[in-house]
Design a protein around this nucleic acid. Structure first.
Length: 104
DNA sequence: AGTTTGACTGGAG
DNA sequence: CCTCCAGCCAAAC
């Protein structure tokens, strides 16, 4: 991955996160696939955690594919519940109802 | 330049 | 439900 590609990847990730509607969530894998780098789901998480601009975005609306919130970020669940996202008894987001995917 | 590290995923036990 | 492992791969050590 060249520096140029890395920059576009980061920009795409941030752009997508900014488009997640209130009350919806999406996954690292979906974002990675949409950028054209489907095997970079871990890079999506890294980008959100280490890029300052991510703080301006609703990055709490990004969860893993099983609907689990980010480790070490206890505020994420309350933030989601405040905007209507329901969690199942097992502590995971009800993905069948709240998953959002980017429009092509 | 080699090793470790994850805001991941999928499968095994 | 849990943990562990393999594959993943750029970034941080």
């Amino acid at each position: 991955m060249t520096a140029e590609q890395a920059r576009r990847f980061r920009d795409d990730v941030l752009n997508i996160v900014g488009q997640i509607p209130r009350g919806k969530v999406t996954t690292y894998g979906i974002i990675a696939a949409w950028t054209g780098w489907p095997s970079h789901s871990r890079m999506v998480g890294r980008t959100l955690g280490y890029t300052p601009e991510a703080a301006e975005l609703p990055c709490h609306r990004v969860v893993n594919k099983e609907g689990r919130t980010a480790p070490g970020w206890g505020q994420q669940r309350p933030l989601l519940e405040d905007e209507g996202v329901r969690f199942k008894a097992n502590g995971r987001v009800d993905m069948s109802r709240f998953l959002w995917e980017p429009n092509v």
